[in-house]
Design a protein around this nucleic acid. Structure first.
Length: 373
DNA sequence: AACCGGAGCAACCGCGCATCT
DNA sequence: CAGATGCGCGGTTGCTCCGGT
């Protein structure tokens, strides 16, 4: 196939995305969904190819993205999954809600590879290096023998491994995959790695209503509860969730094409200074002190930012400290539903539910995603 | 202060597969 | 059935930041 025809077109912008482009894309997809990606740039008024828009959305603008550095648990899980899946970044990312394949790939290439080598492990084979560092080789060998994907005897996810045998071996993987053994105890017949690793998500051995009882396979999931999901960790906001008035919504005024705030909590920011996130929008030489990612990370409304002028870098930095633990667990953007997943829609629709309901929705999505199980 | 090199990251490229016409 | 188109993935590039010299 080669390059796509859209890539040959002239006048298409390349390179870094400007805040204006981000806002256009975000607003368009928020309002209409992405539909056919090739038509997105035209409809959104962007001089980009659809592919570029898709990439930007998936890797950066998607509201369910978790931002910030990877936790040790996440890194461990990536290593475990890489041992099984290899460079299938999208499949690895599917097990890490809120993380993109690109993000994981970059982490792997820049950090984890190096760490594994320092521990005497070949990051490609997950075997000890030919000349491992003596001080670390012994310890790493132990781990390595458990993770060797080329050995059906040692590989707990081997297609030929029986469920019971796998369960005992999976115990060895703790604590990084604490619930994996119970997953395997469901007597899953492993003939295909795809359905198997999808079971990392929940414990199929539960006979109860899986929507309320299924176990997350990793501590990663436990920290991403709905309230953190919806409310930014912002010092300017009350930290008491119970004190928040979730009926105080800030609807997007689509009729006039002037969003009051792309995020519903935009009007909850209690003081003017806090609202004036110090992002120098990179327009015509205006300062761009803060990375756009930091701006998004601070979850300030685009409209507020666009109105902001003459801001100090200090304000930028301080505001950027706020973050949101976004976690939807949905990797495949084709499955993405603005109204179903987007936290601010849930917020606006006052459909906020206790954790069990949240998990129930997660399970429903998982069920549809892995319906072939 | 200037330079340099490594790390981290965002974005692009090229390919394969699926779907459409 | 074949070509065109759309989409997704993994690999790669190039930019920015930052610490060391």
């Amino acid at each position: 196939m080669g390059r796509h025809s859209c890539c040959y077109k002239q006048k298409l912008r390349k390179g870094l995305w400007s805040p204006e482009e981000d806002e256009k894309l975000l607003r368009h997809i928020t309002k209409y969904g992405h539909g056919c990606w090739s038509s997105v740039p035209k409809l959104a008024g962007l001089q980009r190819c659809g592919k570029s828009c898709r990439l930007r959305w998936i890797n950066y603008l998607r509201p369910d993205l978790k931002r910030g550095s990877f936790s040790p648990d996440e890194e461990n899980l990536i290593i475990e999954l890489h041992a099984v899946l290899g460079n299938k970044w999208s499949q690895i990312a599917a097990q890490l809600p809120g993380r993109t394949d690109n993000e994981i790939k970059n982490l792997w290439n820049s950090c984890i590879k190096k760490k594994l080598r320092q521990r005497g492990i070949d990051p490609n084979t997950h075997k000890p290096l030919s000349e491992p560092d003596a001080s670390t080789a012994t310890a790493s060998q132990d781990l390595d023998s458990k993770l060797d994907p080329t050995s059906s005897d040692n590989n707990p996810l081997s297609a030929s491994a029986s469920a019971s045998a796998s369960a005992s071996q999976l115990d060895l993987l703790e604590p990084t995959l604490p619930n994996l053994h119970s997953v395997v105890s469901a007597s899953v017949s492993v003939s295909d790695i795809q359905p198997l690793h999808s079971t990392l998500w929940f414990n199929q051995n539960q006979n109860q209503n899986p929507g309320t009882e299924f176990n997350m396979s990793s501590n990663l999931f436990k920290s991403n509860l709905p309230l953190d999901f919806i409310y930014p960790d912002n010092n300017n906001l009350s930290t008491s969730n119970s004190n928040r008035d979730i009926t105080n919504t800030n609807p997007i005024d689509y009729e006039n094409e002037t969003p009051l705030g792309l995020f519903p909590w935009s009007d909850v920011v209690p003081n003017k200074d806090a609202a004036q996130i110090g992002v120098g929008i990179g327009v015509d030489g205006v300062q761009e002190d803060l990375k756009w990612s930091d701006y998004l990370n601070g979850l300030m409304p685009v409209s507020s930012v666009l109105q902001t002028q003459n801001l100090t870098q200090t304000q930028s930095h301080n505001q950027s400290q706020g973050h949101l633990g976004l976690c939807s667990g949905v990797k495949d953007d084709t499955q993405f539903s603005i109204t179903g997943l987007n936290p601010w829609y849930q917020y606006q629709n006052q459909q906020f539910q206790p954790n069990s309901d949240m998990y129930s929705k997660e399970f429903q999505r998982l069920s549809s995603s892995f319906g072939h199980l």
